[in-house]
Design a protein around this nucleic acid. Structure first.
Length: 788
DNA sequence: TTAGGGTTAG
């Protein structure tokens, strides 16, 4: 019966008005006035004025509470009608609050119940567990056992077992259940089985499961989900087979446990079969099932299907919304992800920690620090930083993406708990922002905390990329040793980083040795090895490797072609470059991206075919970005083509007026041909727009420590020593015939000043430092100048 | 009328 059937009149009596006021006072909306009117009418039946409504009269009202505000309203009615004092009614109210996520109100009701029975105690424990207040649940359970004088029953244990945080407290409860003489029946038994499985004690769980006197679907699910959560997918599947042999059919819980492992094992077929089962058995209206399906399709990159499931869901919860935001974020569509987040706000869906975990990388990618700061303060205001390491890590990563490593570091310092990902995020953040030295220092610091945090794949990958950026092969080799010690050398990603490190440091032979040690059935290591050959001008070797890759049946991807085209570009192999640029489209059906066009513009430009490069840009199927025009502008500098340089820079400033580097490049083109007026115009333009070029830097490794130098930098503690060494070296090389090339100084200054500028170039500072530390021979400086 | 087993993350 619906509460509307109880409505007997439409005008409000004084008592019903009282109910209304009371219901407003405790926060329920006017829309639910009929509920209070109905109850008030119950009280004021003119024919039986003394008769208060019986508990049975409230039954339909209990069932009508589909929203939190309904519960508040019913609460008011119970108070007014004098039925709140009934233990039964108030405990049901307690449960209703808990079901609607309001454990605080549950507690307030609980406190008002004077003669609590075990139903009341059990309900309060489960109210806390249901809403995630595990510590409070344990406290209430203790009070129940120690102070109430009542005996826990079979209803008590399942929620308490569920709230265990570690296996030891679980074991204690297991003993307690055993001592009190409870049979491990289906509920308590399944709880214990799942508790052991959850903490990874699958053998104990399995033994208990096998010895259970009775097993229902829930018991099977406890065991299957235990295997799934521990990544033992084969055991989960064989358990499923046994379950079916015993005539049990999968329900929504079984389905929800299995769907995530379909995505993990890349088994789309099983996922589709389960989806079919869901539809056939009418499980498609379960929110959990829909969320699990949605997530599985998103993990396979099938966003269209995920979106369709979301659109067709009758009921959506926070997990559904979070999953959609994460789905688009993880599939490189941050703008749609952001739209979903906005829609959440429009629909008044409150974000939780996981919403923010997905939102942080989106904000990081938007490039606006003020948004980043508001997101951070939103989290801090709610104290979520303390609750969840993953969120802290996500915020660090966001600041790293925005280029604010000082903020990322501050967040790191303030984290109450740091796990391996916190360290990895900081290290890779520094490395990605060009602060290789800081990355290395952090990695060294991490090693000192080895007892608390064990490095993983991500650590080696970040550390290696930092060492390869500063060209520190000795330190890189130490990481290599650590990788071998941890038996990770056969991991494709770690191995590829080693290839990359040796390659970037110029140790091509070592890179090749490493390459032949790692599995090469995917494009990942091939891309690295092709790229490092290309980088050092070994275009032919890069091409040979590319051919070998095809012989071994490994399909090249977009990145392979970027590596290959850039190898052609660095070796001046124009014809080969064209050939593969066409081949990728014709033979491999790949559409060239901006990066491929960028390589081609670079290839043609470097070779002096500026008109052809311009023609290629004009034929592109999408608008060229700053990297394309930047490549053309760079080529104009090499070939001193002022006219084309002006065209390229005009386009460049249209698409990216913020990058100071391009202004410098154009002014250098003018400077090269001595057009100092042009230089002045461009420089003042850059100054007016408040742009400052990020200075170039050079690094050198001495005794395992890496030092970084910037042009004209005087802040080094050994500055005087370096300066003296530099003077001596310059004098020496001048005495053996070195003539400074003033053309390389792109400023309109006197020749002696040009000497000074050349002499304090960051690479020279680094070499002078190295020389002063190691008594390096001046030959290094000579060699360096040739490459200048 | 209280209970077990389920979906999202850095």
């Amino acid at each position: 019966m619906h509460f509307n059937h109880l409505r007997l009149g439409s005008s409000l009596s004084s008592k019903s008005l009282h109910v209304f006021k009371l219901s407003r006072a405790i926060g329920c909306s006017r829309r639910f006035l009929p509920l209070s009117t109905a109850a008030a009418t119950l009280k004021t039946d003119p024919h039986q004025p003394e008769k208060r409504p019986c508990l049975i009269d409230f039954e339909p009202l209990f069932h009508s509470c589909t929203q939190a505000s309904h519960v508040k309203c019913l609460h008011a009615i119970l108070v007014v009608s004098g039925r709140f004092t009934s233990n039964f009614a108030s405990t049901r109210l307690l449960n209703l609050y808990a079901h609607h996520g309001d454990a605080c109100s549950s507690l307030s009701v609980f406190d008002q119940i004077k003669a609590k029975d075990s139903y009341t105690w059990n309900s309060m424990v489960s109210a806390y567990v249901r809403n995630g207040y595990l510590n409070e649940a344990t406290k209430i359970f203790r009070q129940f056992v120690l102070t109430s004088g009542l005996r826990p029953d079979v209803y008590t244990f399942p929620p308490v077992i569920k709230s265990c945080k570690d296996v030891n407290s679980g074991k204690k409860l297991h003993c307690c259940v055993y001592k009190m003489g409870f049979q491990p029946d289906v509920f308590v038994g399944a709880s214990l089985v799942h508790m052991y499985a959850r903490f990874g004690f699958l053998d104990i769980a399995r033994k208990m499961f096998d010895e259970m006197p009775r097993r229902d679907l829930g018991s099977w699910n406890a065991m299957i989900s235990g295997y799934c959560q521990n990544g033992d997918n084969d055991a989960a599947m064989s358990m499923l087979d046994s379950m079916r042999l015993e005539g049990m059919k999968m329900d929504s819980v079984t389905v929800c446990s299995l769907l995530p492992i379909c995505a993990q094992t890349n088994d789309l077929t099983s996922g589709l079969l389960i989806h079919l089962y869901v539809v056939k058995h009418g499980l498609e209206f379960d929110v959990y099932v829909n969320n699990a399906l949605l997530n599985m399709y998103a993990k396979f990159g099938l966003l269209g299907i995920a979106q369709q499931i979301f659109d067709e869901m009758r009921e959506r919860d926070l997990v559904s919304w979070n999953s959609m935001v994460a789905a688009y974020e993880q599939n490189d569509d941050p703008s749609t992800a952001l739209q979903f987040f906005m829609k959440m706000q429009e629909n008044k869906i409150k974000s939780d920690i996981l919403t923010l975990v997905s939102l942080a990388p989106i904000v990081g990618g938007m490039g606006d620090i003020s948004n980043g700061k508001s997101l951070h303060s939103f989290i801090v205001r709610r104290d979520w930083m303390i609750l969840n390491v993953a969120l802290g890590n996500a915020v660090m990563d966001m600041y790293a993406k925005l280029g604010f490593m000082d903020y990322a570091d501050r967040v790191f310092e303030q984290l109450p708990v740091r796990d391996v990902i916190s360290w990895n995020t900081l290290i890779s953040g520094y490395a990605q922002n060009g602060l290789a030295n800081e990355a290395i220092v952090t990695y060294e610091k991490m090693k000192k905390h080895e007892e608390e945090v064990i490095p993983n794949h991500g650590t080696w990958v970040s550390a290696l990329s930092a060492y390869s950026n500063v060209g520190s092969v000795k330190q890189g080799m130490k990481v290599h040793a650590a990788v071998i010690k941890n038996s990770l050398f056969s991991d494709v990603y770690v191995g590829t980083c080693l290839v990359d490190m040796y390659g970037k440091c110029g140790r091509i032979e070592d890179a090749m040795k490493m390459f032949y040690h790692i599995p090469r059935d995917t494009s990942v290591p091939w891309n690295a090895v092709i790229s490092c050959h290309g980088m050092h001008g070994h275009g032919k070797e890069a091409l040979t490797l590319f051919e070998n890759m095809q012989v071994e049946g490994v399909r090249p991807d977009h990145i392979t072609f970027v590596a290959l085209l850039s190898a052609c570009s660095h070796s001046g192999m124009v014809d080969e470059g064209w050939r593969w640029f066409r081949s990728m489209q014709e033979d491999f059906s790949m559409k060239p991206s901006l990066k491929h066009f960028g390589c081609m513009v670079d290839l043609l430009g470097r070779a002096g075919h500026l008109e052809k490069a311009y023609g290629l840009i004009m034929s592109m199927p999408f608008p060229p970005d700053s990297s394309i025009w930047g490549a053309l502008l760079g080529a104009c500098k090499i070939h001193g083509n002022v006219e084309m340089g002006a065209i390229a820079s005009k386009q460049l400033f249209n698409v990216d007026s913020e990058n100071a580097g391009y202004y410098v490049l154009l002014s250098n083109i003018y400077a090269n041909v001595g057009r100092w007026e042009g230089v002045k115009v461009i420089r003042s333009l850059a100054r007016d727009r408040g742009l400052k070029k990020i200075p170039g830097w050079s690094s050198i490794e001495v005794d395992g420590k890496v030092d970084v130098f910037y042009m004209g930098n005087r802040s080094h503690p050994r500055f005087d020593q370096i300066h003296n060494e530099l003077r001596e070296l310059t004098a020496k090389i001048k005495s053996i015939g070195y003539v400074p090339n003033h053309k390389d100084v792109l400023q309109d200054v006197e020749d002696d000043e040009k000497d000074d500028i050349l002499a304090t170039h960051s690479e020279r500072l680094a070499i002078a430092f190295g020389s002063s530390m190691l008594q390096m021979i001046p030959r290094a400086l000579l060699m360096h100048d040739q490459a200048f």
